[in-house]
Structure formats: structure tokens, C-alpha cells
Design a protein around this nucleic acid. Structure first.
Length: 465
RNA sequence: GUCCCUAUCGUCUAGCCUGGUCCAGGACACCGCCCUUUCACGGCGGCGACGGGGGUUCGAAUCCCCCUGGGGAUGCCA
């Protein structure tokens, strides 16, 4: 057990998205690798936007990805006493002050500052105010040392510093009495003993003021690692416009969690020329040192390729189990069809997602096939009657139904009709599957089994055109 | 506007710290060929990048500066 303590702190205002999942993954990998502790904290201080559904969705997604936390989930909404206490402390020490400026006044000042080309920051009107009128107020942090500079050494980005002149007295407590993000994130990370904060680089700008807060509260400042953002194809912040951004949407589209994990980790991190990583390998090989500094574009094609890879190489019985729900979604009752593992084996090299696999597998489950019209007109004609009957007779005589039996049977058919394999296979394929694209004809026969196969050929014989 | 971050093929990236081994390597996508019973898988090959300009140096993708591009922040969101 090392003393590394990291955390993932999503705000429950929506589903777990791709970017958040990657941040969570990086944290998880670091904790696993160093036998540290991965803490999950739900940042629900924005009561208006936080929902329980979102919390559940985030938990489900992390579970699906295999990112289990060691501690938590903790909810900030359970910790308001602690925050109150800290705000009182800052107030008492003069490190924070009450600000009575109204929203309207602030907006006006901001606009004026912007219009005159200045920095739109709080002008400090209430900084020196000593009275406490019976009016709504917010609590602001008194930024120490206006002339100073705060510097930190980011584990990914390197040295970053910002002059205090660029900062202003941020709000710690809203007029409704609830604390704001920048305060609670500091208190919680400190109180939970987080010593390495790994988060999106959209937080870089917050970091200096948070460091100042750590110091004001007498806490030790943790290390920071800001991971680059994920962008869409147009280099804009990734959003729904670019396709699915929710982790669970990928589950629904037939993606495997290991594919998403593999994709996400390689978006920003690399290990030489290697592309394929299992979770165990990642735990061994992941390092912040190899995380790039610049934003990356989400590339759905590569994710798809990885998914196809994992479908091709994954455990067939597990895939069969996963496929079940996708089959059922198509109205199929898997238990009434052929062996699902055999079905998977026959389709795994031709499907990139479980949805595709379910589409490709459907024919196995319908003895009363709906024939593709073009295929029907081309391959199920009176001209094929003799051939199809011949195949049927030959197959019926097979004592077994394995590769060797089938090969022998087809050799006879080919000889009898003086046809190449292709000419025999295609009409049979249509009779068996309803279309012209399917797994290898021997595989189809084997998976279907003798009885179903013969039934389908005989049925095809009744619909010849 | 201001501040912060960032910059190698269309995309993800290796290389950059420790300049020469890089007329820049891998992967996805795309194109072609091969394999082949359909569809695929696979194999082989091709296309394709150091943003621009100044320096430093015998020599720069690698070091320095400027510009430009992109992202982020500038919230009583997180």
C-alpha cells in the first residue's frame, strides 16, 4: 500500500461522458499501479443541476468500465457542516469577507471593464467593508498578495505560473449559503488526503486560486496533473454534435468496455508503438510521463477498430452472454436457436460491434426466412431446383455433420453437377440464410445443424421462381 | 479583449529532455494487389506530417525568440 491517494470527482449533472471516463481511468490506473487509493466523490454542490439519476448513471458507467473505487462515493451534499466551519474560519481570520454587491451591479461592472478593454474581475468594493447589513451576501476569498505570483509544477504540463493580478476575489459561498466548487474541492481533496489531483486541463486556470486556498486553510498543497481535453473532429470541445459522448451509449451500441478503455487510454497516452492493452497491462505500463500535453480528437473509427479486435479475440462464451440482450432487442429468443457460442464463433470476424453481430446472427433464429429479393431472384430459381435437391439428398445421407462430412458431401455434389464450389455455395447460402452475405457455408451448416439445414433447403424448394 | 495551455501524416501518436543514427517510425481511415464459397478476416504495398519566420550550431523535428493556428479560463457551473 503506497500513500498515493487520487480521486475522481464528477458532478452529477448528466451522464458520464468520454472525457470524464478517461480522467477516471487515469486515476484508477495510477492507484492500482502504486497500490494507492482511488476515491470517488460526487460534487453535487450545485443543487439545482444535480440529480440522483445522474449519480446512478455515473456509477453504472464506471462499473461497466471496471473502474472500481477504493473509497466512496462521498457526497459533498453530506458535508456542508464542514464547509460552513471552514468558511467561518476564513472569515474569522480575515482571509475572506462578506460581499453585498448584487448580481446586477456585478454584471454592470463586468461589462464596463470588458468594454474599456480591462480584465473583467471583481473590483473589491466590499473588501474593506466592516458593517454587516441585513442583506443577502456572498463570502469572497481575500486574495493574498496582489503583487505575487503562484507557481506549480504540473505533472503533465510542467511549470505553470500566474500573476495574482490576473485573479480576483472568488466567491466561496453563494448568497443562499451553499459553498462553491473552488472552495469545496480544496477542502475535500485536503480532508480526504488526496495528494495527486488528476483532472481535465480545463481546471488549470482554477489551480492557482485553489493553491492559495490550500495555503489559507493551512493545508498541504497536493501535486497536480492536468490531462488534455478531448475534442471533436472539428477541434471543438467534444459534444453531442460529434456523436455519442456518453459512456453507456457505447454499451448500447454494442461496444465492449475493454475496447473503450483501450481507446481512451491511447488518446493522450502512448507506450512506444503498442496499440493493444489489457487493463492489467495498463496498470503495469501506464505513466503520467507518457501522457501528451495537447488536446486530442476523438476518432470513432479507431474505437470501432479496437472493438472489432476485442470481438475477434475475446472469450466466445462471454461474448455470447453479452450478445443475448442485443438478440432479444430484435425480438429473438436466443434459447430457441442454435448454440450461441457457435453463433458467435461464426460471426466474430465479420462484426465490429455486438449490434452488428446480432444483425448478422438473426438468420440463425428464423427457420421461416424472409429472402432478400435480389438474392431470391438470382439464386432461388427453377434453374436451381435440381442442384438444391441434389444438395439436400447428399446432406441427408451424411451420418455426421462436421467439416470432413460436409466436404465429402459437397465433393459429390460438385462432381455430379460439374460445378465449382462457388456455384454450389451461393444458392445454398440464400436458402440457408436468406441473403448472399454470411459466414462460411460450412460454418452455417454446422451451426444450424442437419435438421434445421435440411428444413431450410426444402422450404427454399417451395419458393423457387 | 486579457490571461493560461498547446502545436509531427486527415486522426491517435513515436522521436524532442540527452541536436547528427529521421529525405521522420507505428496505428486508424483511405487506395491498390493477393488470399477466397459470399461478406468479412488476414497478408503485402501505396498515399500522407515536422504550421510560418527568425536565430544558435559544422549540423535542428529536436535548443531560443516572434508570429500564426487551436483549446481553455475569464460564472453566486463544476
Amino acid at each position: 500500500m503506497s500513500d498515493l491517494r487520487v480521486r475522481f470527482a464528477p458532478s452529477p449533472t448528466g451522464y458520464l461522458h468520454i472525457g470524464g471516463a478517461r480522467t477516471a481511468l487515469f486515476n484508477y490506473l495510477l492507484a492500482q499501479q502504486q497500490s494507492g487509493t482511488f476515491v470517488l466523490r460526487i460534487e453535487d454542490t450545485d443543487v439545482a443541476r444535480s440529480t440522483q439519476e445522474s449519480v446512478d448513471a455515473i456509477l453504472d458507467a464506471m462499473d461497466w468500465l471496471g473502474l472500481t473505487c477504493d473509497e466512496g462515493p462521498f457526497y459533498q451534499s453530506d458535508r456542508s457542516e464542514l464547509y460552513k466551519e471552514k468558511i467561518e474560519q476564513l472569515l474569522a481570520e480575515g482571509k475572506a469577507y462578506r460581499c453585498y454587491c448584487t448580481q446586477e451591479e456585478l454584471d454592470a461592472k463586468r461589462e464596463a471593464a470588458l468594454a474599456s478593454g480591462g480584465k473583467p474581475k471583481y473590483d473589491g468594493t466590499c473588501r474593506t467593508r466592516t458593517d454587516q447589513p441585513e442583506q443577502p451576501y456572498v463570502v469572497r476569498f481575500r486574495l493574498p498578495n496582489d503583487e505575487g505570483v503562484t507557481h506549480f509544477n504540473d505533472r503533465i504540463k510542467g511549470g505553470i505560473s500566474i500573476r495574482h493580478q490576473e485573479l480576483d476575489d472568488l466567491i466561496l459561498q453563494r448568497s443562499d449559503g451553499t459553498p462553491t466548487y473552488n472552495l469545496v474541492v480544496v477542502i475535500d481533496d485536503a480532508e480526504m488526503g488526496i495528494n495527486l489531483v488528476v483532472r481535465g486541463d480545463d481546471h488549470i486556470n482554477n489551480t492557482p486560486r485553489q493553491i492559495l486556498l490550500y495555503e489559507a486553510l493551512g493545508y498541504q498543497v497536493p501535486e497536480f496533473a492536468h490531462v488534455p481535453m478531448i475534442l471533436g473532429a472539428d477541434k471543438k470541445r467534444l459534444s453531442k454534435r460529434h456523436g455519442a459522448t456518453s459512456v453507456m451509449a457505447y454499451q448500447a451500441m454494442g461496444y465492449l468496455p475493454e475496447a473503450l478503455v483501450n481507446y481512451l487510454v491511447r488518446l493522450g497516452w502512448s507506450y512506444g508503438d503498442e496499440e493493444i492493452f489489457s487493463m492489467d497491462e495498463l496498470i503495469e505500463k501506464f505513466s503520467l510521463n507518457n501522457v501528451g500535453k495537447s488536446a486530442g480528437v476523438f476518432n470513432p473509427e479507431k474505437l470501432l477498430w479496437l472493438n472489432a479486435h476485442y470481438i475477434k479475440t475475446g472469450d466466445a462464451s462471454r461474448l455470447a452472454a453479452l450478445l443475448t440482450e442485443f438478440l432479444e432487442a430484435k425480438g429473438i429468443v436466443p434459447s430457441e436457436g442454435p448454440d450461441l457460442v457457435a453463433v458467435v464463433e461464426s460471426l466474430r470476424e465479420r462484426a465490429s460491434t455486438l449490434v452488428e453481430m446480432a444483425d448478422g446472427a438473426a438468420f440463425y433464429f428464423f427457420d421461416e426466412l424472409a429472402y432478400d429479393e435480389k438474392a431470391h431472384n438470382k439464386f432461388l430459381t427453377e434453374g436451381h431446383r435440381a442442384l438444391l435437391s441434389g444438395i439436400c439428398e447428399q446432406l441427408r445421407e451424411c451420418s455426421g455433420f462436421d467439416e470432413a462430412d460436409l466436404e465429402a458431401a459437397f465433393a459429390k455434389v460438385m462432381e455430379r453437377f460439374s460445378l465449382k464450389f462457388g456455384k454450389v455455395a451461393q444458392p445454398l447460402r440464400v436458402a440457408l440464410t436468406g441473403g448472399t452475405a454470411s459466414p462460411s457455408i460450412y460454418d452455417v451448416l454446422k451451426v444450424l445443424g442437419k435438421e434445421r439445414s435440411l428444413y431450410r433447403i426444402e422450404r427454399a424448394l417451395t419458393v423457387l421462381v
